[in-house]
Design a protein around this nucleic acid. Structure first.
Lengths: 340, 340
DNA sequence: TTGTAAGCGTTATCAT
DNA sequence: ATGATAACGCTTACAA
């Protein structure tokens, strides 16, 4: 039933080695090559990749470990990665940690057993900031979206602080002064964006407060409820990512607060639906294709050159200005107004 | 450098076979088992999965081939599948065809080379309806979301016609009479939903027209433009899936037609943002977890029992009624009104 | 229960 | 350029 390379060899009257060479693109007499190819065709031979890997010690497989496969940011990046891998004749093993560090560790171990050529990892949130980094794996790793403190991996991330700053600039320009920033407490990304937010808020002398919100949406919602029921309701809310933006939207809806009528909403990640809620949400769009392609390139580079110094690629996002930053009632038109 | 099973065996003063048995959960003297486990720990041994597969002829790997990884429906299903696979100690190879039948064929071939235990396949759209089915693969396949005409695979799909009918019932109940239905021309799913739409429209004696729209969004947008610029603008539009819904939204925005003010919009797939556009979109929510879990269960069943008859599981969705079906101007309140 | 040894299907080495 | 052969690291008869 199962046809092997020896069967093909017999069919073509050549040695198994020659068949292997033909399939591997090694130099072979054209006539023989043709004969082999036909024999492959006739026999319906399919190389056994497990055997090939065992013998060649190359898996041509990469692991893709993402923190949340349902987050459009990660799926967009995954698409690019899978695409490039396929072009290169590489397989992608999909791993979804659901933000669970234990699962992440298990997957990294699994990847070792798979003898993957490398791994692209979007790390799960680290609960305690003082978590020790994972033991140095014996395969190349490229981090995306978030870094792991204390570990020196290649990584490709967004210029988080600067982009958060741009968003604040934009909000300030639109006349917003009381701004609340919501950032993930358990990721470096969240903390960096917060820093940028703080810095820019100070620069504009805004009445801004930022909050690190822990994982669960419930806590975030509760915090938001408290914030919005204060005497002076903020003009605008800025959220650290697309998922959080959705959570804020849900909380606002529950409080019957209209966007952008009662409050402006802005944040990170440009999901395809964001132009349709309210007057459209203003966001920093991440260069998802670039991120995927860069990560893949870095990984392939690293596979070829395991001992080079770790590189850190920082990409810029793009501000997509939309209607949700309409100025609060009674504000001078943008461009003519106050901002420093 | 690379520590193998023989190294562990030596370290534990047992034979390689015993190590293998310990790791495979086979009966072994508890004392020895402990010794082996410690030796594994000390040596940092990681089984080579390629070798294991080659020898055992079992890959413990499934292929997941989806038509569009960016479609939230597929990512939701993927999440469940990956999760169950991980629980069972199986790997998932991710393949994204981007609706390209050629890529799909290439991936199926690749899966054969991987000697996967089975494949879960969300088929790409078949351009010409008369496309011949793929050659019978030598591994189990479970289809999700769409079937392949002429091929007898296990499959788990939505009760498309009935659900489309329910949606029409709902629209009719809300007082809509001029309804336009937009359905994908190149998938059985689209055609089934259309049938249900037609049947229900006739039953309610609605002024309904349905259109099969080909792949590209541009064509769809053009068609929509024509439809909406007729003398009598429809009350409601119904679209075949979440992606299409987004396309319609985009087209309507370009024409400055408000949802749900000027026109109601409803469709399939309940994406997390849909409650926030307009007054919320009314949709048929697919049981994505069920679909994933069922597909996985069927696949595992089929792996155990390759020669059983093909099964077809048809799941019901759930109508999520939201504000976009507010009645058109001057309509009796729902429940008291006209519907047959 | 444990050890010995063969072999899974391929590629790499070494002759020719 | 091609062929014979060993070896990749593991599991599984089979023997003890």
């Amino acid at each position: 039933m199962a046809v092997g390379i020896r069967d093909v060899a017999r069919e073509a009257n050549v040695s198994p080695a020659t068949v292997s060479r033909v399939l591997g693109g090694k130099p072979v007499n054209p006539a023989m090559r043709e004969r082999v190819l036909q024999a492959v065709e006739r026999t319906g031979y399919r190389p056994n990749l497990a055997a090939r890997r065992l013998r060649s010690q190359r898996s041509n497989t990469i692991g893709l470990i993402v923190a949340d496969i349902r987050n459009p940011f990660f799926t967009a990046v995954s698409r690019t990665i899978e695409d490039i891998a396929a072009q290169r004749g590489m397989r992608v093993i999909l791993c979804n940690t659901d933000e669970d560090a234990a699962k992440e560790a298990a997957y990294l171990d699994l990847m070792a057993q798979e003898r993957v050529s490398g791994v692209i990892l979007a790390p799960a949130r680290r609960k305690g900031a003082g978590r020790r980094p994972p033991p140095r794996p014996d395969f190349p790793v490229v981090l995306i979206d978030r870094t792991i403190p204390g570990a020196t991996f290649d990584c490709v991330i967004l210029e988080n602080a600067a982009m958060a700053g741009e968003l604040v600039d934009h909000l300030a320009q639109a006349g917003h002064r009381r701004i609340v920033g919501l950032f993930g407490a358990d990721s470096g990304t969240g903390r960096e964006r917060r820093e940028g937010f703080e810095e820019a808020s100070a620069r504009h002398a805004l009445d801004a407060t930022s909050h690190l919100i822990p994982h669960g949406e419930t806590e975030g919602a509760q915090m938001l409820r408290d914030l919005l029921c204060t005497a002076e309701r903020p003009d605008a809310i800025m959220a650290s990512n697309g998922v959080m933006l959705l959570g804020v939207l849900r909380a606002l809806r529950a409080l019957h607060i209209d966007v952008p009528g009662d409050i402006a909403l802005a944040g990170f990640d440009n999901n395809d639906w964001m132009e349709f809620v309210g007057q459209g949400l203003t966001v920093i769009e991440q260069p998802v294709e670039d991120i995927g392609a860069t990560a893949m390139t870095m990984l392939l580079d690293r596979i070829d050159n395991p001992d080079a110094a770790a590189r850190r690629v920082v990409l810029r996002g793009q501000l997509v200005a939309r209607g949700s930053t309409v100025p609060p009632a009674g504000t001078p038109a943008p461009g003519t107004g106050a901002p420093a």
